[in-house]
Design a protein around this nucleic acid. Structure first.
Length: 418
DNA sequence: TCTGGGGTCCTAGGACCC
DNA sequence: TCTGGGGTCCTAGGACCC
């Protein structure tokens, strides 16, 4: 029998902070996105207080202060490390695991003789809680979509919920809106409602051919999955990346080409690191910059350009060189730039890269890149960097309320007794 | 003053080939 | 008067996810 478990960490970012700062327990706490822009994680108390997910901080800040709520900048180094710790526990408790996001994994629990699924779900929850301090919910079902649905119910039912019997599945889906089904977003849920499909059960009972015709094969699969027919397999190994994007809003509006170039150099450095960590090389790169489209008084401008290389590369210096030439074409004076970014496309495995007989601009320095990565890995990001990134901090992101990197830096390790 | 970042997949339509 | 058929590749846009 097929059985999937979806384990997700409750309020993951807030929970990570609470592990190291117990004073946050019981309080209204939110975590802010990059640049302290939006609310991206909320403690249960913050949810109860009606702070909406995704709300711009500047909008909810007065209310948050009124109720003595706390806002923290996101600390991705900490969350990434905690995520890896949680994942290691799953590896011990399931034969295969798909890492679905930073706070969610699918586990394959099918065809294990004598396994009591719910008891195993409780074991998973207890072990993660005890070993990492992170609370999780476990949903179990015969398809990934039903495991997701069960996970919603797990939150209200002591952390574990399984959906296998037909009657139980129908009852659960009847009480669930179609818009809350995994794979149904706001556009499709609206369209479904126009066709009289309001509940998850109605979607399960819809004619898959009708869904295929009116929507797409993607929603048709969802429809089958709700019926208990598994169409979406567990991905044991992550598929190779197709693109790498690094982009950020600036801490302050950027007006000069020099600041834009420093930003792009920094983003490309990050992107090239990601590239090498996946043992990939890129043949196409693209850069973009735009003004703040929320602003009513600013003149709007947005532009992007891409560059194709003769030979794929993973060399930071070469990528920065092309990105800076490209950004000169993107930059137009007279605008207040809000955000810029780089994309790496046309990715291929680095070791099988074809060299070009007549290539003139190729620079392939694997030893240098490896040395830089090793030093930065040990001494901290940016210990060695390219000069084009600059030393000023004018354009860098705001992150004014960030907690220490408790688990990955010796000098920021938590101290007992104070 | 202030509104995130990073991905994937599918489809339709146009260009192009023989 | 009459103007083919089959196929691939690429891109833009739309949908979704966290």
């Amino acid at each position: 029998m097929r059985a999937f478990a979806l384990v997700d960490c409750n309020n993951f970012y807030v929970s990570c902070e609470r592990v190291f700062n117990p004073k946050l327990e019981g309080r209204i706490v939110v975590i802010l996105s990059n640049n302290d822009g939006n609310v991206i994680s909320r403690s249960p108390e913050a949810k109860a207080a009606g702070i909406p997910m995704g709300a711009p901080w500047h909008e909810v800040r007065p209310e948050l202060e009124r109720v003595s709520g706390l806002a923290l900048s996101s600390n991705y180094v900490l969350y990434g490390d905690m995520s890896a710790r949680v994942r290691m526990i799953f590896d011990e408790l399931a034969p295969s695991v798909e890492v679905y996001s930073i706070d969610e994994c699918f586990l394959d629990l099918g065809n294990i003789a004598g396994l009591d699924l719910e008891a195993h779900g409780r074991e998973i929850g207890q072990r993660v809680r005890q070993w990492t301090g992170i609370p999780v919910g476990v949903g179990i079902g015969p398809t990934k979509t039903l495991a997701k649905a069960a996970n919603r119910l797990a939150k209200k039912n002591g952390g574990v919920f399984s959906l296998f019997e037909k009657a139980a599945i129908r009852a659960a889906l009847a009480g669930m809106d179609a818009r809350d089904v995994w794979g149904v977003g706001s556009r499709w849920s609206k369209k479904l409602e126009e066709r009289g499909i309001h509940s998850a059960l109605a979607l399960a009972d819809a004619d898959p051919r009708f869904i295929r015709k009116g929507f797409s094969v993607v929603l048709q699969r969802t429809c089958y999955e709700l019926q208990g027919i598994s169409c979406i397999a567990l991905e044991k190994a992550p598929p190779p990346k197709k693109q790498i994007i690094v982009s950020r809003a600036f801490g302050k509006k950027v007006t000069t080409q020099q600041d834009l170039k420093e930003g792009v150099s920094y983003y490309m450095t990050r992107a090239a690191e990601k590239l090498r960590s996946g043992r990939l090389a890129a043949r196409t790169l693209s850069v973009f910059a735009h003004t703040n489209h929320f602003s009513k008084k600013d003149h709007q401008y947005s532009s992007a350009t891409s560059v194709s290389l003769e030979v794929p590369t993973d060399n930071t210096g070469e990528l920065i060189h092309h990105a800076l030439e490209a950004i000169e074409r993107v930059y137009k004076p007279g605008y207040r730039y809000h955000k810029a970014g780089v994309m790496l496309l046309d990715l291929s495995p680095a070791e099988s890269t074809q060299t070009e007989l007549f290539a003139t601009d190729s620079c392939w320095q694997p030893e240098l890149m490896q040395a830089i990565d090793t030093i930065n890995g040990q001494m901290g990001r940016g210990t060695i960097r390219y000069g084009s990134e600059g030393f000023r901090t004018t354009w860098r992101r705001k992150s004014n309320h960030c907690s220490p990197r408790y688990t990955t830096r010796w000098d920021e390790i938590p101290k007992a007794g104070n």
